[in-house]
């Protein structure tokens, strides 16, 4: 029964990694020369954003696989990833707004990336609502898969929005040709933070998928997909 695993070794590992990178990000690495301490927000903001995108990619791939193979395990993965992606998108938006207030003096400045991330949040909130409104288990899985695929078409638009619109948001500093413009110590902490977030993501994904499997096994009708 998948419900057995409460706090697994992997969960402990992920939690410890997150705690270490949080402490290092807050107290150990030096402040950024240009932005000062406020740049430390990057260590949680950027991994949240990247993993939110990864989560939506997982939902997309799982949705395609469900439509192809019609196996419920893909649907469980899709809902799990969408829900975690939504949480991470929410965190990205809030931490981004806080970072914006500290650097631009405004919580919200209709910055392209922040705005389109907010749209992404609404799209996947719509995905979860669509799931909740469909009763039959297999029908829900099939229709949610279609919606999950359509929703993902919006993700590249979000990702490339920084190139489409010219806003306040700083241009990408890590993924671009040539040497990253970020200091190496800070880059190392960013990558370490990304790793710890990824571990937490994988752990949450496994646990949330197991929850869905438990629901399927018990055939609960407690508001599907919630």
């Amino acid at each position: 029964m998948p419900m057995k695993a409460r706090v697994s070794t992997f969960g402990l590992l992920a939690g410890t990694a997150l705690a270490i990178t949080t402490i290092v990000g807050l107290f150990v690495v030096p402040a950024d020369a240009a932005q000062g301490d406020v740049q430390r927000i990057m260590y949680v903001h950027v991994p949240s954003a990247w993993l939110a995108y990864l989560a939506f990619l997982v939902t997309f791939v799982s949705s395609v696989l469900y439509l192809w193979r019609r196996e419920l395990r893909f649907d469980r993965l899709a809902i799990a990833a969408a829900e975690i992606g939504l949480v991470l998108t929410g965190i990205t938006i809030v931490t981004g707004a806080i970072w914006g207030k500290a650097t631009w003096g405004k919580w919200w400045d209709w910055d392209p990336r922040l705005t389109t991330t907010a749209i992404l949040f609404v799209v996947y909130a719509g995905y979860l609502l669509v799931r909740q409104s469909l009763g039959d288990r297999y029908r829900r899985a099939r229709l949610a898969a279609v919606y999950g695929i359509v929703a993902f078409v919006n993700v590249p638009i979000v990702h490339f929005s920084v190139l489409w619109w010219r806003g306040l948001h700083q241009a990408p500093t890590v993924i671009r040709p040539g040497d990253p413009s970020i200091d190496h110590t800070l880059l190392f902490e960013l990558l370490a933070s990304l790793l710890s977030f990824t571990l937490v993501f994988i752990w949450a994904l496994r646990r949330r998928t197991a929850l869905e499997a438990g629901r399927d096994a018990a055939d609960l009708t407690l508001g599907p997909g919630t």
Partner: peptide, 9 residues
């Protein structure tokens, strides 16, 4: 701002 961000995460 930094503290608020980490607390939210």
């Amino acid at each position: 701002f930094v503290a608020a961000s980490y607390l939210i995460v």
